[in-house]
Structure formats: structure tokens, C-alpha cells
Design a protein around this nucleic acid. Structure first.
Lengths: 187, 187
DNA sequence: GTCTATACCGAGATAGAC
DNA sequence: GTCTATCTCGGTATAGAC
């Protein structure tokens, strides 16, 4: 049945997204993913020809997640409120972020070092996020500098995720988002 | 002879630092390191009982590198000039940073996810860097907020390294360091 | 479409001659 | 101290029965 297949495939993707977030892409074996998804190892290869294809599926998943969230942020109203909604989302995830880091940053770093083209595709996730932020700054009348402002905002967030994860300290996320909120307010 | 041993050991560490920076710790095999250092694989285990010990040696190397550089920055004069010296160092490395990312951030992320205690030790590198920055902000009379300022500065840098690496775009490093320089000036 | 068994390879680590 | 040969395990991927 098709419904069965779709179900297994989505279970595999779900497991892959979770496990690679927790342990990294290289350290997550297809056997681990299969086990978590309750699919026999050999069957994985019916849905994904190679591990690289699993990686692509993870990226697609992250992209559609981001799209969904950015639509939610858009509903917050004015550009400043949208950006604040984004920061609020970060704050709500502070504990997970401190425990395991950003799901995107280390994933991109790892894939870039691996070579093989997956890294470039993964970068699309940041590309979209950056584009969304830039649009908000443009709407705030910061057309000249909108790119730089977006880079600064996303950099600050990605960086504090690295530090919070390194020290397992969610308070760093609180500190930095407060500062960024203030900064947005004063722009 | 001891001199031979020391020489081989340092060659191995040098190779380990380089290769793990380029390809990540997990993806760098002891065979790769041995080959680059021109030491037979079996002999590696005379100097390091396990790969984990190689990881520790890499961390020690990074720590002493940072110590050396922070002493150079200290010679720039007043606190603001010291911070600018640090940023200037970043700028001088922009091409390498865009090509391969930060040597510390992804390394810490990877080791944290691996578990096993190496990650915590690696975090010491950021700990020292943060402490140095904090000292500069204190000296600028920002005692209240010195921790938050240091976190913001290091986060911004680490984050832009992730973005610059992802997009292989050294210009992002230029943009962000300019902004941070300005920010320091206005504090 | 599904699953078991297995081929194959590269990794960390060890044995033991020199 | 040094180096070759090898063990062992875990990973990706495939073969082929059902």
C-alpha cells in the first residue's frame, strides 16, 4: 500500500532529523535511524538509495519547518513585532538549544567540511532565514543596511547558540535575546 | 633519542590540528594524521594511547595559541585598541575563515555531541576568550554589563564565521567586523 | 514492497619483531 | 622507540528470498 510506504518514509525522516540533531550527521548511522523508526535496516534502501539522500531529506524537512515558522512570525503584525516573534521563538527553545545547539549551524558546518554538495544545499536554510530577516528590516525603512542588519542578527543568534551549547547554559540565550530585542527596538 | 620523539609528537599534533580543522574530528582518521605527519600508523600509539588523547592535544594546542594571541592583543594599548586588535586579527584571516569556518566553534559542537568529556574541555577555549573580552570591557568601565558585552561580541563573531563558511563568503566577515568595530567605538 | 543475510571497507586499536 | 601486520568492530550498501 502507498499509505504504508509514506508512513515509513516519514518515520525515517523524522528519526533522521532527530538523531542527526542530537549526535551529528556522520555519527548517526542508518542502522540507528532504522531502529528508531522501527524499520528494518535493509528496507531503508528502498526509500533512500544512499545516506546522502537521507541528508537531502533532512534539509527539505528543515526548509519546510522554517517556512512554516516564518509564516507564523509574519502574523505578529508590524516588522518589529515579527522580528520579536522570531526572538520569542528562540527564547521558548532555550533549554533545547543549550542542550544540543542549533539544529542548522553545526549541520551546515559538518556538511560543508564533508564536501559533496550537500553543504551548499543545506546553506539554503540560512539563505531563506536571512532573506526573511532582511525583508523585515527593509520594511522598517532600513533599505541601505538591511543585509548587514540581517547578517548581524542571525550571526548573533547562531553564535550564542554555539556558546550556550558549549557551556550548556541557557541563560546565555536569555541574555543575548534581551540585548537583540533592545537593539531592534532602538533601530 | 628524546629529540626525535618530541619532533614526531609535535608533527603529529600539528597534522592533527590542521586536518581536524579542515575535515572535522570524526572524519579525520589516525591514518590520515599519521600520513600527513610522515609517521607510520602503528607508531602513533606510542605517543597517544587513544584518539581521544589526540583530541586533548589539539585542545591544548588551541589553548596555547589563544594565549599567545591574546598577549599580542594586550600590547595594542588601551582596552578599545586591544579589542580592535582582536577584530583586526579576524579580518586578516577572513579568507581562511570563509573557506573552513572557525577552528573552535564547530570543534566544540562536534565534541559536545560526541559526549565523552572532551567537549567540556574544549569549551575552555571559549571560556578563556570570553574572559579576555570581559576583562577589556571591565577596563572600559562597563563592569555591570561586561559579561553580556563579551557574550555579544564573541557570539557575533562565531555566528558570522558559521554564515561566512556556509556561503563561502569572506565579505560577510568584513561587514560584521566593521559593525562590531563601530559598536565598540560607541560604547 | 518487505526483510534477512551478508559482502565489503575503513576505522581504532593491538601484537610482537626489530 | 620504531614499524609491519593484523585483529575486530561498525558502517554503508547489496543480494536475493518472500
Amino acid at each position: 500500500m502507498r499509505s504504508q510506504s509514506v508512513d515509513k518514509r516519514s518515520r525515517l525522516i523524522r528519526a533522521a532529523v532527530e538523531l542527526t540533531y542530537l549526535h551529528g550527521f556522520a555519527k548517526t548511522s542508518l542502522a540507528d535511524i532504522a531502529k528508531q523508526a522501527k524499520v528494518p535496516l535493509g528496507n531503508v534502501y528502498y526509500y533512500f538509495k544512499t545516506k546522502k539522500e537521507v541528508g537531502e531529506a533532512i534539509i527539505e524537512q528543515r526548509l519546510s519547518d522554517l517556512e512554516a515558522r516564518s509564516k507564523e512570525w509574519d502574523e505578529a503584525g508590524a516588522p518589529r513585532d515579527r522580528l520579536r516573534a522570531c526572538l520569542l521563538g528562540v527564547l521558548e527553545n532555550k533549554e533545547v538549544l543549550a542542550a544540543h545547539g542549533c539544529p542548522v549551524g553545526p549541520f551546515c558546518s559538518e556538511l560543508r567540511k564533508e564536501g559533496g554538495g550537500l553543504g551548499k544545499r543545506a546553506g539554503e536554510i540560512f539563505g531563506r532565514h536571512l532573506a526573511w530577516m532582511e525583508a523585515q528590516f527593509k520594511a522598517l525603512g532600513k533599505g541601505n543596511d538591511s543585509r548587514g542588519l540581517a547578517v548581524h542578527l542571525l550571526s548573533s543568534l547562531e553564535g550564542v547558540f554555539v556558546l550556550a551549547h558549549t557551556f550548556r547554559d541557557s541563560h546565555l540565550v536569555v541574555m543575548e535575546t534581551k540585548r537583540l530585542n533592545q537593539w531592534i527596538q532602538e533601530l
